[in-house]
Nucleic acid binder design. Sequence first.
DNA 1: TTTTTTGCAAATACTTTGCATAACG
DNA 2: CGTTATGCAAAGTATTTGCAAAAAA
Lengths: 153, 153
Amino acid sequence: MNLTVNGQKEELQKRLTRFEKQCRGKGLRVTQQRRKIFCTVAQSCEHPSAEKVFQAVRRELPNVSLDTVYRTLASLEEMDLLMRVGLSSKARFDGDLRPHCHFVCTRCGEVYDIFPQAGEELLSLPSAAKEMGEVKQVHLQLRGICKKCQERK
Amino acid sequence: MNLTVNGQKEELQKRLTRFEKQCRGKGLRVTQQRRKIFCTVAQSCEHPSAEKVFQAVRRELPNVSLDTVYRTLASLEEMDLLMRVGLSSKARFDGDLRPHCHFVCTRCGEVYDIFPQAGEELLSLPSAAKEMGEVKQVHLQLRGICKKCQERK
DNA sequence: TTTTTTGCAAATACTTTGCATAACG
DNA sequence: CGTTATGCAAAGTATTTGCAAAAAA
């Protein structure tokens, strides 16, 4: 994997400090594996898959296992130290093609529709978008904890 | 599955006609299975998984198979008759937490970052969002065909 | 030392594929 | 009728889990 430094404003050291602080706050131990996995994703700008992270980390920690990578990525996501592109778990489909967005509950996995009010603009595309290719669909997804899950806590 | 009619403006009949026209245009036959699978997703407002669609379709076509459902959902997506929530395939991660969006190429699966220009507003949340729960992250994903794929066509 | 985390291996989803038969146009 | 789509079964990925050993605090 090409570990080009991505354009994050805070340098790696600051981010590592934040990572360690959050781990300790949650009672999670700062292991070599966790640190290396975090650094790998933080420094990459290619949206690596679990497998890619595994391969990169393995160069320095030849004994890491893929399942540790999975477990760690999940906990880093939970701590908001990284984000997941798309959704994990199984595919879900939507036959409603009108512009709207989805609220996805990260606890129960439920997906709710949100329609903009009359007059509300859903979004304006960043101008850089057309340089990437031909945009066919726009998916706006809000992630958080839904009302139901908040109540049953 | 609760097949509540969703609030689509065109009624089912019109959508079915469009579906049939697009199938014929692509040389795809309008089979009972395709029609039923399309109707199921078009009428549902609960973002069903492949399995859920399978269960619903099965009630009227007891012999459908799950793999037909998968194949059909994929072709309906290709024809832009439905959309997929999140991404299929494997999970990918992003350690850059600054507000930005992703261009996802639906042909090669590559994910590119798009950062808004200075002064460009990425989006304004629909006012209905806060009623759903606590929004923790906003994911804006543009799907289309990337430059590279356009060229190698 | 005590508890958490790891690596291993095996299990579990979820999704895709090859092929003979059935069905559309 | 000729070709495409289906159903079946089996394979392929991606991800998760139980458990004993290793490592952090």
